[in-house]
Design a protein around this nucleic acid. Structure first.
Length: 243
DNA sequence: CGTTTTTGACCGGCGC
DNA sequence: GCGCCGGTCAAAAACG
């Protein structure tokens, strides 16, 4: 699927646990672009594609990719409150863009997972049947935000499958897209954990593949969740150094 | 015919 | 030190 850049496949590996292969892509817009990209199909739902981006483009990229990168990096810098994230990792689930930032330059770093819903909502809404949407999508906006927070908190702290979080997010975005004219929204999950084992680099990968380790230590997770409209971030906070 | 994909080899890090 | 595992290389095939 087209995400704003040109990619060349340079490898494919099958992981040990799941039969789904993992494809490796490299950005071919510029000859020396260090951006990598991994595409893997989800284990529990074969219809979900997990795309992981790594690195930053050092060349001009298209408008949609610039918008996506600027919003994710803006959210990252916002969450880290000025601290420079060394290498933000972004992951995509059927158009739902996540990005986990690990500030490994300072010791009390906590992983930050950003759920980016900027990329056109209709693209991933069509990938899920209407039967999987949640019944509480008829709430009003403020209740939705609260419900979204409660659903995410419950989903993370009570050892669910990660897909339930995705489904919750998708259903919320679905409702918002229908009631607000496909207004792009951005949701951010910022999780500060005291458990160092969850702060390692593979935290988000483990969360995406099997979220059982989250429930193993539910008492250590203090989840803070915020929802904000990224349209303002797109307009004013477009301070992406790569242009 | 140039570019991309495929696919086995290769390599380095890590755990035992 | 050795083998496993994840990631990359590169030659050949496929594609347009």
């Amino acid at each position: 699927m087209y995400d704003g850049c040109q990619w060349r496949k340079y490898g494919q590996k099958i992981s040990k646990g799941n039969p789904c292969p993992r494809a490796f892509y490299r950005c071919t817009v510029a000859p020396g672009c260090p951006v990598r990209k991994q595409v893997q199909r989800s284990v529990d739902d074969m219809s979900i594609l997990i795309t992981t981006y790594e690195g930053n483009h050092n060349h001009p990229i298209s408008e949609s990719a610039t918008a996506m990168a600027s919003t994710t990096s803006a959210a990252a810098s916002m969450l880290l409150s000025g601290s420079s994230a060394s290498q933000p990792l972004s992951t995509e689930l059927n158009g739902l863009s996540f990005s986990s930032i690990h500030d490994n330059s300072r010791s009390p770093s906590f992983p930050t997972i950003t759920l980016d819903l900027v990329g056109s909502p209709s693209s991933f809404l069509t990938n899920f049947p209407t039967t999987s949407r949640f019944p509480w999508t008829n709430l009003n906006f403020s209740s939705q935000q609260d419900q979204f927070y409660q659903t995410l908190t419950k989903a993370i702290t009570s050892d669910p499958s990660f897909r339930s979080i995705i489904s919750a997010a998708i259903s919320m975005v679905d409702q918002r897209a229908e009631s607000f004219g496909h207004n792009p929204m951005q949701a951010t999950v910022s999780q500060s954990l005291k458990d160092p084992s969850l702060c390692e680099s593979g935290y988000f990968k483990g969360l995406a593949s099997s979220s059982s380790r989250i429930g193993s230590s539910p008492q250590s997770s203090s989840l803070s969740f915020s929802v904000f409209n990224s349209a303002s971030a797109l307009g004013s906070d477009n301070k992406e150094p790569k242009k």
